[in-house]
Design a protein around this nucleic acid. Structure first.
Lengths: 255, 255
DNA sequence: TGATGTGAACTTTTTCACAGCT
DNA sequence: AGCTGTGAAAAAGTTCACATCA
């Protein structure tokens, strides 16, 4: 009823996943300790997380699996359907669109978009692909509430703007770009490269690679432009509007 | 030069991405304010993050794009190559394996695995698919340091154990399961369902859906048997995505 | 007896705000 | 004159530890 820490929300979804799995195994009741263990967190945190959304456990016993699942689904707004749109029907987009009705069939795919003329009009997972230009129109019409962006980096911001224009307020972004959106739009970005780099950091740290976590001191290079060795006339950038457009996929992946 | 908050590491990877994009646009220098803006964080946080890994800016001017990129790559351990393995060559696994050399060519795909007999032996992106049973052997032999799990939920833990047996200490998990691993193994899970649910929560919250964040008190049920936890402690990192992949496993996706 | 729910202590992360270089 | 780098303050999140109740 109050704020529910952002971090807790993410974990609640994980608890729900674990609980569903447990229920499938015939588990009727589980303690905070047991659930926490399987969810990979400590029990105090789990109880605290649950406390943010109301208590549903029985002291001395634990939680009733089915009941807690029901409760979490309600809390996460899964009792309502969220029509989803997938933009960018490439490898990933295609896989997602076909994705058996999307997780838990609570997110029916209501629209598909792409720019490729060859894709427009074809059917993917029972839905016809529309041209990106129709995003505002179609999303508003079909009341799409959640969109998944699977386009190359260069097209993501444009697509995002169209989605916002279409009234979409929740976006799951798989493009390697930081999307600029109004305050009332929620964006979650999943970037393969970023994930791999984070792992790379830990791997490097683990083996104590010299460089990591401490610059290669010594090269105190400075002064006038280095690397590029060119005039440094401070290129002030106004990042605010910078369309890193560029349809070419290639770089999209790179970072 | 020590700890670098976990949250900061993730952001450093994002800064690197943004910087690379900026460099591509010809930007030579950028201020913390500008970089922060494009990366979607506030400048104080960005400066603090960078301070954890050493200073490389010029007061009164800003950061030299190329130089900062180089520095961040070093810090994130990207100067070294990390041979990667992809397990589960379904839709997603296939897409990833073909993924133009994997982000930034710093992660060459050195091995592919699956259980499906029809896939064993075929070539994907220039690499032959081996049977999952050979994971320990092949990973050790080819010195795989990072693995990506794209199997259905039901096979993920088993695959994970094999990877760990093969010496892999960094895992990117796309299966909707919380993997149980030894303390020295780093796991990052990306679960589509979880991501969608988090967005669902915000959507529900936004429109003030009655249920959300407060349960429907009243029904009190209880149970008997209990379930204990499982093996070791895991490590939930980022929530996750799901299985877009594969054969069967229906419920796995559900939550 | 046994496990939940939670105030309070503690830790980590974020933000402030400004001294210190360029 | 301008922007970085960073102590110190504030906020957020996590863990303790125990009263509480089935």
């Amino acid at each position: 009823v109050r704020s529910v820490p952002e971090a807790a929300v993410a974990r609640l979804a994980v608890y729900l996943q674990v609980l569903t799995s447990l229920r499938g195994q015939g588990v009727r009741t589980i303690s905070s300790e047991g659930l926490a263990r399987t969810a990979g967190v400590n029990s105090a945190k789990l109880r605290k997380d649950l406390s943010y959304v109301g208590s549903y456990g029985t002291r001395g016993v634990g939680y009733d699996t089915a009941r807690l699942i029901e409760h979490l689904e309600r809390v996460l707004g899964l009792t309502r359907r969220h029509r989803a749109a997938v933009v960018g029907i490439g490898n990933l987009g295609h896989a997602l669109a076909n994705y058996a009705g999307f997780p838990g069939r609570g997110f029916p795919v209501a629209a598909l978009f792409d720019v490729d003329e060859d894709l427009i009009g074809i059917s993917v997972g029972g839905r016809l692909v529309d041209h990106i230009d129709r995003i505002p129109e179609v999303c508003a019409e079909r009341e799409v509430t959640i969109a998944v962006i699977c386009t190359p980096a260069g097209a993501a911001q444009e697509v995002c703007d169209l989605l916002v224009a279409g009234g979409v307020r929740c976006i799951l972004n798989f493009a390697p770009v930081v999307l600029q959106v109004p305050d009332d739009v929620e964006v979650r970005t999943v970037d393969l490269a970023v994930e791999l780099q984070i792992l790379s950091f830990h791997e490097a740290r683990r083996r104590g690679d010299s460089d990591v976590a401490n610059g290669a001191k010594g090269d105190v290079v400075k002064g006038v432009d280095v690397v590029t060795g060119v005039t440094t006339a401070a290129q002030v950038v106004d990042p605010l509007l910078d369309p890193l457009i560029s349809p070419a996929e290639g770089i999209a992946v790179r970072r």
